[in-house]
Amino acid sequence: MSLEEIVKDLAVTEQDQHLTFDLSEEELAVPVMNIREIIRYGKLTKMPMVPNFIEGVINLRGNVVPVINLAEKFALNRHNSDKRTCIIIMEIDIDDESVVMGIVVDKVLQVIEIPDSDIEPTPTLGAKIQTNFIKGMARTEDGFIIILDISQVLSAEEVAIVSNMHKNNAVEE
């Protein structure tokens, strides 16, 4: 499925719709509700003095948007970017404040319907990704899809690491 077709599917923002994507040999999904748009991976501005999972920032029509590298965040094997690498721009609420962030993925796959009833609880063992970032698993013909709890991934405490970083630096100095 081409990126254009997927973007068209995104327009249907129903509760159960999920966007699936590849990330370091894993098939993951995020709810379409939180997705603003998908853009191709381009040049980013690197940020100094931040944790490695922050890939950098991009200019999205005049707004500066932070981009998170999920592979780095989940401690997976990081793939080099190619022409299929994308940034999914997501909008989530952190402490009642709407925050726009991007996540880097290797390849977007498709928009599929995953009703809540099909989502199984996360097995405590065997997942490569920290379980608190996972909302559940969904079974498909090809195997399992991991549905991310995206607000947890980009949550206040996680993001706040950036805010605390410099304080730690300051103590060390």
Binding site: V99, A160, H166
Partner: peptide
């Protein structure tokens, strides 16, 4: 600097 980077000292903000 926004929500994510507001704790970063040494920078006044971004520009495009």
């Amino acid at each position: 600097l926004g929500r994510v980077f507001k704790g970063l000292s040494g920078f006044a903000g971004f520009t495009i």
